[in-house]
């Protein structure tokens, strides 16, 4: 897919040379237990970063902290150069949460969920624009769900609902994407399609940061891997190019059997 889901070219902001995300000695503590410890990271615009690590290594917590969704007990986080508490350019962010959306209380259509991607303070007094509908169509086509656009969300399978979430993030028109386990529960054909879609984002210069358990087509695209764990020197156990021997050393994938199809041979790293 080409990267034309975005209706208008993005304005170049003064902060475009700033890191998309940067943290300085960030710590997140839940009930006195350190989940993310001393994480110092800088992710440049245009990077395609895989966040790996065992269950409980703090992967989700780290990216939630990057988005300001969990409070830090120490350190700081900046998005595009702005401290996360003061960050206002949320239109730049497309987020796919790990948890599926709450469904079943009131029916909602796939299209409504995707349309909601651009609803926020900035669009408060604005009427829906035609360009947005076009980006919604492209986003749903990119995940292969355009023909289910009028279906009730809760009639879709878990994997399909996750694809709706991904389409929602694509339809934001963002330039910085954060995806928490985007491949969980998704069949291999859809995973390849997803890799293709996110690859197009990378080629267009967007920043993509994703958490994954699975070393499939998506992880092959990564230009950088961050492996989390609990070590003496903080949560970041490895940060660098996705090389086979480095990641094997850090046991990046030996545990994850519960999340869908797993290729038994790691295909992520080509030296």
């Amino acid at each position: 897919m080409s990267h034309d889901h975005r209706p208008t070219p993005l304005p170049t902001t003064p902060s475009s040379t700033q890191p998309a995300f940067s943290t300085t000695r960030a710590c997140v503590t839940f009930d006195g237990e350190c989940v993310v410890d001393e994480a110092t990271l800088s992710i440049a615009p245009g990077e395609f970063v895989a966040v790996l690590g065992e269950n409980g290594a703090g992967k989700s917590t780290l990216i939630r902290a990057l988005l300001g969704l969990v409070p830090l007990s120490h350190g700081n986080v900046r998005i595009h150069g702005t401290p996360v508490e003061g960050f206002r350019d949320w239109w730049r962010i497309g987020y796919v949460p790990q948890r599926l959306l709450a469904t079943g209380a009131v029916p909602m259509s796939v299209r409504e969920v995707v349309a909601s991607a651009r609803w926020g303070p900035a669009s408060r007094f604005r009427l829906p624009r035609k360009a947005n509908q076009e980006s919604q169509r492209r986003a749903l086509e990119a995940v292969g769900l355009w023909d289910r656009r009028d279906a009730r969300l809760d009639t879709l399978s878990g994997g399909q609902q996750r694809r709706v979430l991904i389409a929602r993030a694509l339809a934001t028109g963002a330039d910085t994407f954060v995806l928490d386990e985007p491949t969980a529960g998704i069949d291999s054909e859809s995973q390849e399609r997803l890799a293709e879609t996110l690859g197009a984002l990378r080629d267009a210069g967007d920043t993509v940061l994703f958490v994954t358990h699975e070393l499939g087509a998506l992880a092959d695209l990564a230009t950088r891997a961050i492996v989390l764990g609990h070590g003496e020197h903080g949560s970041v156990r490895y940060d660098g190019p996705p090389r086979r021997e480095e990641l094997a050393h850090h046991h990046a994938w030996h545990h994850s059997n519960e999340l869908g199809p797993i290729d038994p041979t790691p295909t992520l790293m080509e030296g």
Binding site: G68, L69, W90, W91, I93, Y95, P97, L101, G120, R168
Partner: peptide, 16 residues
């Protein structure tokens, strides 16, 4: 905005 909040509070916050 209330709709998005009810959909998922985290997602709503990443939309400002």
């Amino acid at each position: 905005e209330i709709f998005v909040m009810a959909l998922d509070p985290d997602v709503a916050r990443t939309q400002g």
